[in-house]
């Protein structure tokens, strides 16, 4: 068995939405596209996105942190959306566990989106079919692309390197190593859907700041500034006399 999925490190994610933007850019022109929009350049733009980032404030000041949650289809092992599809348009591939929608069979009844506990399916009003993350199935097996680019668009775009892609059933894959080393968890495990995408939690970072070291750095900066000032011949009072 093989189950391709994403692993997202919430500790590294900076909430820049690059994954969402690149996802939209690739998929709107890829095999799963177009991802149609209403009013794309007007006041209230609306449209189909496979990947959305929500931002949450967790905790109370001063013990507070900001969590950015990029959420796309979880490619659940026990996908509830596939069970309810009346036409079989929604299906889970046996070979790599990716959940896909066959647009030619989809009648646009939206029943699958009701059955999804994560809200990861989006209805295309223009084409009248349900659309969702394909895990960039048109990239990861695309032999026209160089080997290192055969990854989902969101993984390639992430500037913080907060996303890993791979086979979570293969313990040697990068995704599995991230899950094992970073204590990867699933969103809402009580949904019973057994989502494949994993998230790595925020980690506590403790930096010890000692007074001597701080002064050392401060003096080094002051000296550097003084040297520059001397070189240019303009010495202001506060720099000259620390």
């Amino acid at each position: 068995m093989s189950q391709k999925a994403l692993v997202i490190d919430l500790h590294k994610c900076v909430g820049c939405h690059a994954c969402a933007a690149n996802c939209k850019a690739w998929n709107t022109q890829g095999d799963a596209g177009p991802l149609t929009d209403t009013n794309p350049y007007a006041k209230d733009p609306e449209g189909v996105w496979f990947n959305r980032v929500q931002t949450y404030e967790v905790g109370k000041f001063p013990e507070v942190e900001v969590v950015h949650l990029p959420k796309s289809c979880m490619h659940c092992k026990n996908a509830p959306c596939v069970e309810v599809c009346p036409t079989g348009a929604s299906y889970k591939r046996v070979e790599d566990g990716i959940v896909l929608v066959n647009y030619d069979d989809c009648i646009g009844c939206k029943y699958c989106s009701w059955a999804c506990p994560y809200g990861c399916r989006e209805f295309d009003e223009f084409e009248g079919v349900m659309k969702k993350c394909t895990l960039c199935v048109d990239r990861i097996y695309n032999e026209a692309l160089p080997e290192e680019e055969r990854k989902p668009a969101c993984v390639i775009a992430c500037p913080a390197k907060a996303r890993a892609y791979g086979d979570i059933d293969d313990p040697s894959s990068q995704a599995s190593r991230w899950i094992a080393e970073g204590k990867g968890y699933k969103l809402m495990p009580e949904s019973g859907a057994d989502p494949s995408n994993h998230y790595l939690p925020k980690r506590k970072v403790n930096i010890h700041v000692d007074k001597e070291a701080l002064l050392k750095v401060a003096h080094a900066h002051i000296n550097a500034a003084r040297n520059i000032a001397c070189d240019t011949g303009s010495v202001s009072e506060d720099v000259a006399q620390p």
Partner: peptide, 14 residues
């Protein structure tokens, strides 16, 4: 204490 701060791109949506 968890509070939603940003709903992401193009709100409201599906």
């Amino acid at each position: 204490h968890i509070r939603l701060m940003d709903t992401g791109t193009a709100y409201p949506h599906f």
